[in-house]
């Protein structure tokens, strides 16, 4: 596994933001892990070893960091990662029903991926858009006010 030449260049740019030496290479870890996830799809052990090599950091410390943060996927996710906020304000707006409808519609429960690798369903914590709940983050983008089964269906239709 190797970073593309384009991503190698990006890593050089990232390193410039931080002090020189090991402290700076460690500081670059989060952005470089993000880059690895973008290129390799998820953070497999192999992907993490590649990062370890590029930043000259111990694989164990990288594993420790990668497993702390929820946005780093340690297993493959589908083409569309549906992340439903289930915290208080979204819950009051009916997030539980939204999750239930998604479960029925996709035939999976949170933490699973559909057999065709199209959808992964996750319940996530507050996405800081509480005034327009329930919120579903699909990959990078927020979809707000997804209140009814019909809203969910319309969203899924767009992602087909």
């Amino acid at each position: 596994m190797e970073f593309t030449p384009e991503n190698k260049k990006k890593i050089e740019e990232i390193l410039k933001r931080y002090p020189e030496g090991k402290v700076g290479r460690q500081a670059a870890l989060l952005p470089v892990l993000r880059l690895a996830q973008e290129q390799f799809g998820y953070l497999s052990e192999e992907a993490m070893l590649t990062v370890a090599q590029v930043l000259d950091l111990s694989p164990a410390s990288i594993y420790g960091v990668a497993t702390f943060y929820t946005l780093f996927n340690k297993k493959p996710v589908g083409k569309y990662h549906l992340q439903v906020c289930a915290n208080l304000s979204c819950c009051m707006e009916g997030a539980e029903k939204v999750v239930k409808h998604l479960e029925e519609k996709l035939g999976i429960v949170p933490g699973e991926t559909t057999a065709d690798n199209r959808f992964t369903l996750s319940e996530v914590e507050c996405l800081a858009a509480c005034g327009t709940g329930p919120v579903i983050q699909v990959n990078e983008n927020y979809h707000e006010k997804i209140k009814t089964p019909e809203d969910v269906d319309r969203l899924l239709e767009k992602l087909r």
Partner: peptide, 23 residues
């Protein structure tokens, strides 16, 4: 510096640790 998911990183010293590339 983009975070990677973790409420606790809003606590200022955790934020610093996270900026340093740690848990």
């Amino acid at each position: 510096h983009r975070g990677a998911g973790g409420y606790i990183c809003g606590e200022e010293t955790a934020l610093i640790e996270s900026l340093e590339g740690k848990r």
